[in-house]
């Protein structure tokens, strides 16, 4: 059974239907990506999935629980965390406070200390700057912080919305390394990306979203090799 399944999701902004009935599945342990051009509806899908936006239609099931109408904040204790587009770290709070907020729903002090230690080990820069205001970090460091913050909640499913957006090539590689590492540690990943080449190369499966509809799906390797996809999304 799929860890996450979305059936026939529809989302509208006023009279405009942005998502016109899409269905997708994410199995436990997979990296699944949703690729598509600007305005295809990738972020809308993410927001509707977490009920930051109302759905017109559709059903979302996570690990056997219907979460279609569950308030966003209740999804975190269930095991779903999202790294939103544009990172949205708390720029007026310190790095340490951001991490602490990531663990808002966790109550074990020991677990918190261990998770923070692991994150600081992987990103020493976050330890160095733990008392610094997060808004002063560079874009790449903020992305590391945003992903670390989401991991503080020990999610089973991590939703990543455009994690490589606006980053230098060095940090783009770092982000994709981190995604692979997170999956190795046992977290399932649904990734939304404009950088289709990078996304497909680390994905088990992928869906192509075009103006509110899923037009293609397949394994990452299949889609990477597909001529039409190469022309439309990979710049070949």
């Amino acid at each position: 059974m799929a860890l996450l399944s979305i059936e026939n999701l529809e989302v509208s902004y006023g009279l405009i239907r942005a998502i016109k009935g899409i269905s997708l599945k994410v199995n436990e342990g997979e990296i699944v990506s949703l690729i598509g051009a600007n305005g295809a509806g990738k972020t809308t899908t993410m927001h509707a999935l977490c009920n930051l936006l109302p759905k017109q239609n559709g059903r979302v099931v996570f690990d056997g629980t219907d979460i279609t109408n569950m308030p966003a904040h209740q999804l975190v204790p269930l095991g779903i965390s999202q790294v939103p587009e544009g990172r949205r770290i708390f720029g007026e709070l310190t790095v340490a406070e951001n991490l602490r907020l990531g663990a808002y729903t966790r109550h074990s002090k020991q677990e918190y200390a261990e998770t923070v230690a692991r994150i600081y080990e992987r990103f020493p820069i976050l330890r160095e700057r733990s008392r610094q205001i997060a808004g002063t970090l560079s874009g790449g460091e903020q992305q590391m912080l945003a992903m670390s913050r989401a991991l503080m909640a020990h999610p089973r499913l991590l939703l990543l919305d455009e994690p490589s957006m606006g980053l230098s090539p060095l940090y783009v590689s770092e982000v994709f390394d981190m995604i692979r590492k997170i999956r190795e540690d046992g977290t399932t990943i649904l990734l939304v990306e404009q950088n289709a080449k990078k996304a497909l190369s680390i994905s088990d499966r992928a869906y192509v979203l075009e103006i509110g509809r899923i037009t293609r799906s397949g394994t990452g390797a299949e889609l990477l090799a597909d001529d039409a996809i190469r022309r439309a999304y990979l710049g070949d």
Binding site: C50, L52, P71, A72, H73, Q74, L75, V76, P77, S81, Q82, P84, R88, I89, F90, G91, E92, L93, E97, R100, L101, G102, Y104, T105, R149, A150, A153
Partner: peptide, 24 residues
């Protein structure tokens, strides 16, 4: 406190606060 920090988070970005599991 944890709740005090959550208040600051909601004040800065209500949507991101919800994604932390904070009941706005």
């Amino acid at each position: 406190t944890r709740v005090g920090c959550a208040m600051l988070a909601v004040s800065e970005d209500r949507g991101a606060a919800q994604l932390m599991g904070i009941n706005v």
